[in-house]
Lab assay of single mutants.
Amino acid sequence: MTFKLIINGKTLKGETTTEAVDAATAEKVFKQYFNDNGIDGEWTYDDATKTFTITE
Rank of each mutant, 00 (worst) to 15 (best):
A48G: 07
I7A: 02
Y45V: 01
T53S: 05
E56H: 07
T17N: 04
I54Q: 01
N37C: 15
T49I: 05
D36Q: 11
N35D: 14
T17Q: 09
K31S: 05
W43G: 00
G38Q: 12
T25P: 00
L12F: 14
K50R: 13
K4T: 15
T49Y: 03
A26L: 02
F30Y: 02
F52C: 01
E42G: 05
T25Y: 07
V21F: 10
Y45Q: 00
N8V: 13
A24D: 07
D40F: 14
K10G: 09
L5E: 03
T44F: 10
D22N: 07
E56Q: 12
V29P: 00
D36F: 12
K50H: 13
E15N: 06
K13V: 10
I54D: 00
L5P: 02
T51Y: 02
L12G: 10
G41T: 07
E27I: 10
L5W: 02
F30E: 00
K50V: 03
V29F: 15
G14H: 13
F30P: 00
A48Q: 10
V21D: 08
K31T: 05
A24V: 10
V29I: 14
N37S: 11
T44A: 10
I7H: 03
F3R: 02
D40L: 12
Q32Y: 05
K10R: 12
Y33D: 02
F34R: 06
D36W: 10
A26N: 01
Y45L: 01
I39D: 03
F52Q: 00
A23V: 09
I6S: 03
I7G: 01
K4W: 10
Y45D: 00
V29E: 06
D40E: 13
T2W: 10
W43V: 06
T55V: 08
K10F: 12
K31V: 10
V21L: 10
K50A: 05
I39W: 12
T18V: 14
A20G: 03
A23Q: 07
T49V: 04
K10E: 07
T25F: 07
T16S: 08
A20D: 02
T11C: 15
I54R: 02
D47F: 06
E19H: 12
T11W: 13
E56A: 08
Y33K: 06
N35L: 15
I39R: 05
T44N: 06
D47S: 13
D46Y: 02
K4G: 03
T11V: 11
V21S: 10
T51K: 01
T55W: 11
W43R: 01
G41A: 09
T49G: 03
D22V: 01
T18N: 02
E19K: 12
Q32C: 06
N37Y: 15
F3C: 05
V21M: 11
N8E: 09
Y45H: 00
E19M: 14
D36N: 10
T49W: 03
N37K: 14
E27S: 06
K10L: 13
T53L: 05
G41R: 04
D22T: 03
N35K: 14
W43N: 00
T25L: 04
A23S: 07
V29T: 08
D36I: 11
N8S: 07
A23D: 02
W43C: 06
V29A: 07
D47L: 04
Y33W: 15
L12Q: 10
K13C: 15
D47I: 06
D46M: 03
G9I: 15
N8I: 14
K31L: 09
A20H: 02
M1G: 09
A24C: 11
N8L: 14
T2G: 03
T16V: 15
T18H: 05
D36C: 10
Y33E: 04
F34S: 15
F3I: 04
I6E: 02
G9M: 15
G38F: 14
G38T: 10
F34N: 13
A20L: 02
E15W: 14
T11K: 10
N35V: 14
A20M: 02
E19P: 03
T18P: 01
V29D: 04
M1V: 11
L5D: 02
E42P: 05
K50I: 02
T16P: 02
F3P: 02
I54Y: 14
T44R: 06
T51D: 01
I54M: 11
T25A: 14
F52H: 00
D36S: 12
W43Y: 05
G38R: 08
L12P: 02
T49H: 04
T53H: 05
F34I: 15
D22H: 02
T17H: 10
T2F: 09
F34D: 01
A24T: 08
E19L: 13
F52L: 01
D40M: 12
T11G: 09
T55G: 04
D22L: 01
T44I: 07
F52A: 00
K50W: 05
T53F: 09
L5K: 01
D36R: 09
A24N: 07
K28G: 06
Q32P: 01
L12A: 09
Y45K: 00
V21Y: 09
F34A: 15
G41S: 04
Y33V: 06
F52V: 01
T11I: 11
V29N: 08
Q32N: 07
K4Y: 15
N35R: 14
G38V: 14
T16R: 14
D40P: 07
D46K: 02
G9D: 02
T55N: 08
T2M: 10
T49A: 05
K31E: 04
T16C: 15
N8F: 12
K13E: 06
D46G: 00
E42S: 08
Q32V: 07
F30W: 03
F52G: 00
A48W: 07
G38S: 08
F34V: 15
T44S: 12
K13I: 11
G14E: 10
D40T: 13
A26E: 00
K31M: 11
T2Q: 09
D47V: 08
N35I: 14
T51L: 03
M1E: 12
A24I: 08
K28I: 10
A20F: 05
I6N: 03
Q32T: 09
I54E: 00
D46I: 04
G38D: 09
K4H: 13
V29K: 09
W43T: 03
Q32R: 10
V21K: 12
Y33S: 04
M1C: 12
Y45S: 00
E27F: 15
G9S: 10
L12D: 06
N37A: 13
A26T: 00
T44C: 09
L12M: 12
Y33L: 13
T11M: 08
E19N: 12
G14C: 15
A26I: 03
K10S: 10
T11R: 08
T25V: 05
T18W: 11
N37P: 05
T51I: 04
G9Y: 13
K31Y: 05
K13F: 12
T18R: 04
I39E: 04
F34T: 15
T18I: 15
D36T: 09
E15I: 13
A24E: 11
E56K: 04
A48L: 10
T2N: 07
G14Y: 15
T53G: 01
T55C: 05
I39N: 04
T53Q: 04
T17R: 07
A23L: 05
G9V: 15
V21G: 06
E42A: 10
T17I: 10
V21C: 09
D47M: 06
W43S: 01
A23F: 09
D36A: 11
N37D: 06
K10N: 11
D40Q: 14
K10C: 14
T44P: 00
G14V: 14
F34M: 15
N37V: 14
I39T: 05
K31R: 14
G41F: 15
D47E: 12
T2L: 10
T2P: 04
N37I: 15
K10Q: 10
K28C: 08
F52Y: 04
Q32I: 06
D40A: 10
I7Q: 01
E56F: 13
I39C: 10
I39P: 04
V21R: 11
W43K: 00
Y45I: 00
N37G: 08
F3M: 02
E15C: 15
T49C: 03
E56L: 15
D36E: 12
E56T: 12
